Simulated assay, not measured.
Amino acid sequence: MKDQLQQVRRLVPASRFPAMVAAKVDTLWADEAFRAAQEHQMRHLLEHTERADEIPELARKYAEAQMMRRWLRWKPHLITHQEVRGVENVDRTRSVVLNFMHHNQYSGLFSSLDRVGIHCHLLALAEAMERTATVDIRQHMRIVTSRATVIPTTQGSKAVLAAMTPGVVMAIASDVPGQTEVEFLGQRVTGSFGAARIATLSDSPVVVATAVREGDSQHIQLHPPLEPSDFADPKDLLAEMLRIHGEAVLAWPEVFENPTTRFGALDG
């Protein structure tokens, strides 16, 4: 049944996606449990920010964005040719850590970068690559990895550090549950220390990649490099990376994927 649904998504013209998604969410919005689940996602992300009052409105937009993401992964050409700004911020003579989050159409990030000459090595969860993954996840991973060199997390930090040679761009996400206490959008959570640690140990600049919306258009922004030596320690570097990401997510929160699965809760 799911395979048939994916086939339908392949055949439907992309021009019909917005109307179909809006109609589906209109129907689902009458379901109190569905509506509460969407609000829970936005509350989890925004309750400690100045946009907390907008949670009910943003919850509806979040539901549409989530559904649109599932449809668009079956039209990969629409998300793998995103405009990239700030290409000059990637130093091709050094190893670079490209730091990203699961924001907007991030699955097309690495193909979009590769098209402008920035090939990424991607640190990816091994379980996402397994054949037992769902059809939807397998399609998602095909897009994510189609123009990137994948390094499974099971290989460990030694393998990542060994790959950090001049010209290598290592893409690492920070919005995953970890052991490091950090602040993100006004709350203390646990995040991944990996990107900041790898950057510091390899003396590699960090280039933060964010999704930006401008009117009816959007693009990927590569921010000016952060030099590990400019920070007291990797935790300070990580804090600055998350500050930059926080501004981008707060400006466009409804396209942040599954907020309740990002970062981790502090005990107690």
Rank of each mutant, 00 (worst) to 15 (best):
D31N: 13
S15D: 11
R60C: 04
A36G: 01
N89R: 12
R60Y: 14
N89A: 10
D53H: 10
M42S: 07
E50A: 13
K61P: 00
L98D: 05
T93G: 03
T49N: 07
S112P: 04
W74E: 00
F100C: 04
E88T: 03
S112E: 01
A37L: 05
V90Q: 01
F17T: 06
T93H: 09
T93V: 02
V90E: 00
H81I: 01
T80A: 02
H44C: 13
D53C: 02
A65T: 04
M42A: 05
Q66M: 15
V84C: 02
F34D: 00
V90F: 01
L109R: 03
S111W: 07
M67D: 15
W29M: 00
L98R: 05
G86F: 02
V97H: 05
L98I: 09
E32N: 14
W71C: 04
D26P: 10
R16S: 11
R60Q: 08
A23T: 13
S107A: 14
N104D: 14
N99D: 11
A65S: 14
A37N: 12
L58F: 03
G86P: 06
L98P: 05
R115Q: 14
I79R: 02
V21G: 00
A30F: 12
E47N: 07
E64I: 13
L98G: 10
E88H: 08
R35W: 05
K24W: 05
A52T: 07
P56M: 03
A59V: 02
A14Y: 09
V96L: 08
E39M: 12
R73W: 00
S112K: 01
R69S: 15
L113I: 04
W74Y: 11
I55K: 06
S15K: 14
I55C: 08
F34G: 01
V25A: 13
T27Q: 14
D53V: 01
N99G: 02
L98A: 11
V84Y: 04
R73D: 00
V97Q: 04
F17G: 01
R35C: 13
A14T: 13
L45V: 05
V97G: 09
V25E: 11
R92F: 06
H81L: 04
H103V: 09
S111I: 03
H77L: 07
E83R: 11
Q38K: 11
F17I: 14
N89I: 03
D114A: 15
A33I: 12
R60F: 12
R94H: 10
H40K: 10
L28E: 06
V90T: 01
A30W: 11
R35Y: 09
S107F: 12
A52Y: 05
L72M: 09
T93I: 01
E64V: 12
A19R: 15
M67N: 12
L113E: 03
M67G: 10
M42N: 07
Y106I: 15
W71Y: 09
K61L: 15
